[in-house]
Design a protein around this nucleic acid. Structure first.
Lengths: 155, 155
DNA sequence: CTTACTGCAAATGTTTTGCAATCGG
DNA sequence: CCGATTGCAAAACATTTGCAGTAAG
């Protein structure tokens, strides 16, 4: 049985062919890197990871490739915290939202069917046809709440 | 009875005094401008509006003042669409989320108690202490769906 | 061989910052 | 008067783009 990463590569290549785009080493290497981790990566992370693996890919190519990956639905682009964009692999059947700890930056993924259903209903009530939902909750994770209680936020 | 705008000004001045900050014309004028509209404004909008009223405020001051207003809770900062930041006045008891039309940019505000309650529960289940929620739904508004049906998306 | 892709460096657009002049308390 | 604030222009950032050389098909 094919791994998620293998399936993603197949889909990506198919997408490229269908659009008269070329299957290049850089594009495959980036896809591979994204699918080899569960982390939420930004452009810089990817640049560093590629460099660490001796695969040289320029920043421009990273942005251009991420764009393609988002367009073909293999990668999700979102803002965590309030800064720049983060990217993560899309795992079919694993839709989720994010809680972001404002102290340590930890990201907790969650998904709730009731929430999902209610959002859909609200759209209907407004005659709005949704294409993309983004729910983000900022706050303090369990560990950082404990730290706070010990007044150790002074680091 | 005091208007929302008047109440806001009072709170802002109080906040400034408490923090040894000065009550300047620029700060009051910006607060006033934000509270005189229901729109979601960005820094540029504010710059243009101030210029239109012959009140000259620099871009730097706008950003610095918006920061203060967000800090004291009178203004809400958010990303609509995917571009830069938008700011809107905070109206007590008027919490809401946003639907953004990806075609015309229209912003629909909505709020739903069931959604709210469920979000709170989910945080509890994860021992997460929320401080800020942001739900944004992108899609097509009613008018743009109609346009699409008439295949007039080609403008 | 043809067309798309890459890396580079320069450009972009938004937001931030250093600094000297200015204003509020 | 003193310290905070302002405007300006320069800096900082993340992201995008033009272009000449390079690689895919």
């Amino acid at each position: 049985m094919a791994t998620l990463s293998q399936r993603a590569q197949k889909l990506f290549i198919q997408y490229l062919r269908e659009n008269n785009l070329k299957v290049t080493q850089e594009r495959l290497a980036l896809l591979d890197e994204i699918f080899s981790t569960n982390e939420h990566l930004d452009a810089d992370d990817l640049l560093a990871r590629m460099k660490a693996k001796k695969k040289k890919v320029s920043r421009a190519t990273i942005y251009r490739t991420l764009d393609l990956l988002v367009q073909c639905g293999l990668v999700r682009k979102s803002r965590l915290g309030q800064e720049h964009y983060f990217y993560e692999k899309v795992q079919p059947g694993r839709r989720h939202d994010h809680m972001v700890c404002t102290h340590c930056g930890k990201v907790i993924e969650f998904w709730d069917p009731a929430l999902d259903e209610r959002q859909r209903q609200i759209c209907q009530e407004h005659n709005f046809r949704p294409s993309f939902y983004s729910l983000q909750i900022q706050g303090l994770c369990e560990a950082c709440q404990a730290l706070e209680r010990e007044s150790r936020f002074l680091d």
